[in-house]
Structures are given as structure tokens and as C-alpha cells.
Amino acid sequence: MINVFRRFLQKFFKNMFSKKKRIKFGLYGPPNGGKTTLANRICMDWLGEEMGSVSNIAHETREIQIKEEVTIKNKKGNELRFNLVDTPGIATKIDYEEFLKVGMKEHQAKDRAKEATKGVIDAIKWLDDMDTVIVVLDATKDPYSQVNITIIGNLEARKIPVLVIANKIDLKKADIKKIQAAFPQYHVIGISAKFGKHIDEFYEALFKLTG
């Protein structure tokens, strides 16, 4: 009888802790905004290893990538532990001929386009699983694109906390004010994920976002 009770208690506590959910931080945005560069920056800063490959050619990330148990610390010594989810860039069109222009062979270009479409589908499906989302936008590009508005509108409808990142501020054409004007209801932080500029401000914002 005592053994039965002990086994029940062991099972109860094991289940309780194994089902404990880790916060999922999703990186979302259009292609080539710098999501994977930011994911790599976070992973290098706190885990000492990169997460995925980056490229100037759009749709380099075509599959969802997850880095589990990333722990960051702030100046006060508080810890924030989460699973980082890097998603493929969301686009409304994918033309394999665009990949031919950058020197790919026809079959490579077609394969990449097909994988990219699947990537977009997966990124949209994963929206429901996110606890917090970091929308990564290229600060040199026009922020008033419908993809950006649709992503943020969907996060708003799902009541998922959002942090907007204006990336690539190391470039001359970068315009953070334009992104702030486009999304005035959100906290916008200008960073350079590539060079780590204002990255501490970004980490601090993650703490604030999760309360």
C-alpha cells in the first residue's frame, strides 16, 4: 500500500515538472530582415554557438529552427530562460527566377522556391505556438508592407506580446523613425544584429516584455 502511494507521488511530481512549459520566443518578419543573424547573435552571446546559416540571398532559412533552453541575464542578475524559434521569412510571392539571377542552376532555384513556400506555411502555422514574438524588420526598407502589417495584426489578434526590432542600423539608409511611425503602438528598438550595436538594450527589452 505504501509502495503504491509512493509510486503515485513519484509519477505525480514527475509529470508536473516534465509538463512545465518553457517560454517560446519567435523571430518573425519578412525575408532578409536579419532574423537568423539576430538568432546567431543571441546564441553566440549566451551559448557560444551559432544557430543557422545566413546569406544575402532571400529565403536562406526555409525550415523552423529551435534552440532550446537559452538563458540570458540582465544587470540586476535576473535570469530569463526560453526556447528560441527562428522562422523562415514570410512573403506573399516566391519566384524561382529570382534565384536564377543570383547564379543558381534551374533545378536548385526551383527546389529553393519550393522549400521556401513550405517554410512560409510552417511559419504561419507556428504563430499559434508562440508566447512572445520579436518582429525583425530591415530598417533600410519600407515598413508599410502588407506582410509586416499582417504579421503584427495576427499577433495582436492572438494577444501575443510583440517587440519590434529595426535591424541593420549600421547601414546609412536605415530609418528607425519610419518604423516607429508605422507601428506607433509598439516598442521599437534599433539594433545591428550583425555588429551587436544596442544589443544590451534589446536584451533589457526582452525582460520588460515578459514582465
Binding site: I90, A91, T92, K93, I94, T117, K118, V120, I121, I124, K125, L127, Q146, V147, T150, I151, G153, N154, E156, A157
Partner: peptide, 14 residues
Amino acid sequence: RSHEEAELIRRTME
């Protein structure tokens, strides 16, 4: 609706 816009993109990809 916003979820329909996302669904339109998803169906377009398919």
C-alpha cells in the same frame, strides 16, 4: 480579418 490575411498568404504558398 487578420487571420484571413494570414490564411490567404498560406493558401497562396500552397
